[in-house]
Design a protein around this nucleic acid. Structure first.
Lengths: 341, 341
DNA sequence: AATTTAATTGCAAACGTTTGCGGGAACGTT
DNA sequence: AACGTTCCCGCAAACGTTTGCAATTAAATT
C-alpha cells in the first residue's frame, strides 16, 4: 500500500518541468534559485507531501543525525531520567536517539555496539554492563567514532566520561550522619568491586577519617545484589549484633528501604536508635515510612551533559579526550535521619 | 579521525582483484560464488573490519529494519516494561528500535511521527499522549506505513490496538473487594475521560451491578492527575464523610498509596476498616505498609505482542486491520485488602 | 574437434540526494 | 557591436549496495 506513492525530488521536478537539482536547491533555499521557482517548488512539495529520504541523504553525507545509547537496564528509574536528559538535549539539537539495553550482559553489549556501528550512528553514549571485563569491542568502536561513557564507567576506556561525584556524595551522606551525632555507622555495599560501589565506599572512609572515627570492618557489609531483599537480611544481621550501629549508610535506596523494613518490624526507632541513609532518590524513598534520607542524582543533567560532550566530539573531529566530568549531587534530608515531629 | 579508513565492498574487491558484485554475493553467501572465493572474501572482510553500510542498503531496499516507538513518558515504570518487551522482541527479529517521548504533548507527538517518517522506519508503535485530540498526523502516517497503537489507545484511529483488558481488570479488582464483604466501595478516577480511566470505571460499574450494589455517586471521586498527592487529598475527603466507604479502588497505584498514607496517619485500620486496591503493580506497591493489592499489567507481554503484530503488518503488505487485542491481567492480593497476620 | 552445459564472475543500472561546474539569457558597460 | 557580469538553472558524478544479465572459463557431451 505504501511504497508506490512516495514523492521524490524527481517527481516534483517532472511535475514542474525543472531539473532535480533545481528542486533540491530550491528546497534548501539556495541563493542561486529565483524566489518564484522556490515558491513553486515549495508549493508542490507540500502538495505532494514530500518528505526527504534521510537514507539517501545520510548515504551521501555520512551523517545520520542519530546517536546510539546503550544502558544496562532501561527499567531502573534512574536510568530513565538519564535517558530523558539525553533525549531532550538530542532533540534540541536535531538528533534522533536509538536506545538499547545490554541487560548487564557484556556480549549483548558488544553486539549492540556492532549494530550501532553498522547503522552508522554519529556517536555513542554507553553506560557499561556491570560485568564488563572485555573492552575490545568498545575500544574498536572508539577508534571509529565518538563514544562517551556515562554513569557506569571504567578507567579502562580512554574517553570522555560523565559520572556523578560518587565519592563526594557518599562523603556528604556519612558526614551528615556524623553531624547528627552518630558514631557507629554501618555501610552496605556491593561485594563485587564495581566502580560506583568502590567510590562510595571511599567517600565513606574519608568521612570517617575526617572525623577521627576508626573503621570497624565488622559493620562493613556487602552483598551480591543490593536489593531490598538483601537490605532486609542485612538489617537483621545488624540488629542482632552485640554492638549495634547507630546508623546505616546503604549504597542503594532499595537496600536502605529493606533495612528500614526490618527496623520497623523490630520496633527499632528511626532515626533515634538507628538512622538510615540511602542513595539515588528513587520514588520509593518517599513511599517508605519514615521517608528516606538519600542522595539525589540529577539524572537529567548527566544525560544532558553527556550528550553535549558527545556532540562536541562529533563536530570537532579532533583526537579523543579522556577527561572525567563529575556532576555534583544533592543530599536530601528526610525523616530517616532527622527527627521531623 | 574516523571517516578515512572505512572498509567498503570496493576496498575488499580491489584488495582481492575481484569485482564488487562478487564480494557482495560472497558475503551474502550466494550459491553462484565458489567456496574458495567466499572463503577469501570473508577472510579479508574480517581482517579489514568490514561493516556493511546500512544506509546504502536501506537506501536501495527501502527497508531500514528499524521501528519507531513513541511513548508519553519514558520514566514510568510500566512504560519501561513495555519498552523492554518491545526491544526484546525486536532484537529477536533483527530490528532496531528508536524510542521517543511525547511528554504527553500532542504537538510533540506529531513532530516525532514526522521525524520517524522521514527516517524511514519500517513501522511505528505509538502510545498516545494523554491530551491527543487532533489525529491528522497519525492518520497521515497510518496511510504511509504500518502503525499500531498500544497501551494508550483511541478508537479514533482505525488500526490494530494492543491494550490490557482494563475493564476486566477493574471488574476483578472490585469483585475481589466485594467478596471480602465490602459493600461501600469508593473509586478514584481521572477527571478527564481518558480511555484507560473510562474502561476501569466501566469495570467498576459492572462489578457493582453484578452484585446488586447501587452506585453512589458521592463516592466516585475524580482528579486531574491521579498522583500520590491527590490520593492523600482524596483520602482525607473520604474519611471525613459521614458515611465512610469500607473500601477504595484507586485507578492508579500512586493514588492508592496516597490513600493508604492518609489512612495510616489517621490510624484507620487497613483493610478491616477500609481496604485499598490499586492498579499497575508498581515497585512502590510492596514498599508501602500494608503492601498494596493491585493489578499486575504484564508490560513485557504487551510490548512483545504489539511488536509481533507490527511485524506482521510490515511483512504482509495487506490492508490495515483494526482489531483490538486485549491482554489479560493478574490481580495480586496483598495486605491492603486481606488480613495477613 | 565441435558443441552444449554448468559453474563462476563481471558489467552496469538503479536507489534519491547533493553539489561542482558549466551554460544560456538578460542586462549593463565600454 | 563586442564584451563582461549577474542571475538562474541543468548536467552529471558521486555516495555503497544489490541484482539482472551477459560474459568468460572449464568441464562434459556428442
Amino acid at each position: 500500500m505504501s511504497k508506490k506513492n512516495i514523492t521524490t525530488l524527481k517527481k516534483i521536478a517532472t511535475e514542474l518541468g525543472v531539473s532535480i537539482s533545481t528542486v533540491s536547491r530550491a528546497l534548501s533555499n539556495h541563493p542561486d534559485i529565483s524566489d518564484e521557482t522556490k515558491q513553486r517548488v515549495n508549493e508542490t512539495a507540500k502538495r505532494l507531501h514530500y518528505v526527504p529520504n534521510l537514507f539517501a541523504k545520510g548515504f551521501r553525507s555520512h551523517k545520520t543525525s542519530t546517536i546510539g545509547v546503550i544502558v544496562p537496564d532501561i527499567s531502573h528509574y534512574f536510568t530513565s531520567t538519564l535517558l530523558k536528559g539525553i533525549m531532550q538535549e538530542a532533540e534540541l539539537n536535531g538528533y534522533k536517539v536509538i536506545v538499547s539495553e545490554s541487560r548487564n550482559n557484556e556480549y549483548k553489549q558488544a553486539e549492540m555496539l556492532q549494530t550501532m556501528n553498522q547503522f552508522g550512528v554519529d556517536g555513542i553514549l554507553l553506560s557499561l554492563a556491570r560485568t564488563t571485563t572485555n573492552f575490545d569491542e568498545i575500544l574498536n568502536t572508539l577508534a571509529i567514532r565518538p563514544l562517551i561513557l556515562f554513569d557506569k564507567v571504567s578507567t579502562k576506556v580512554p574517553c570522555t566520561q560523565v559520572v556523578i561525584d560518587e565519592e563526594d556524595a557518599a562523603f556528604r551522606a556519612v558526614q551528615h550522619l556524623i553531624q547528627l551525632g552518630k558514631k557507629r555507622i554501618a555501610i552496605i555495599k556491593e561485594t563485587e568491586k564495581s566502580f560506583n560501589s568502590e567510590m562510595r565506599y571511599l567517600g565513606y572512609l574519608r568521612a570517617l577519617k575526617t572525623n577521627n572515627i576508626e573503621l570497624d570492618e565488622s559493620i562493613v557489609l556487602s552483598s551480591e545484589d543490593i536489593s531490598m531483599q538483601q537490605g532486609k537480611r542485612l538489617g537483621t544481621v545488624l540488629i542482632s549484633m552485640k554492638n549495634r550501629p547507630d546508623a546505616v549508610f546503604a549504597i542503594t535506596d532499595s537496600a536502605a528501604i529493606g533495612v528500614i523494613k526490618t527496623l520497623n518490624k523490630n520496633k527499632i526507632s528511626i532515626p533515634s536508635e538507628i538512622a538510615v541513609v540511602g542513595f539515588s532518590n528513587n520514588i520509593s524513598s518517599i513511599i517508605i515510612e519514615p521517608k528516606l534520607t538519600t542522595i539525589d542524582q540529577p539524572g537529567n543533567k548527566i544525560g544532558e551533559i553527556a550528550f553535549r560532550y558527545l556532540l562536541e566530539e562529533i563536530n570537532n573531529d579532533t583526537q579523543i579526550s579522556n577527561k572525567t566530568i563529575e556532576i555534583k549531587t544533592n543530599l536530601i534530608v528526610r525523616d530517616s535521619s532527622f527527627k521531623s515531629d
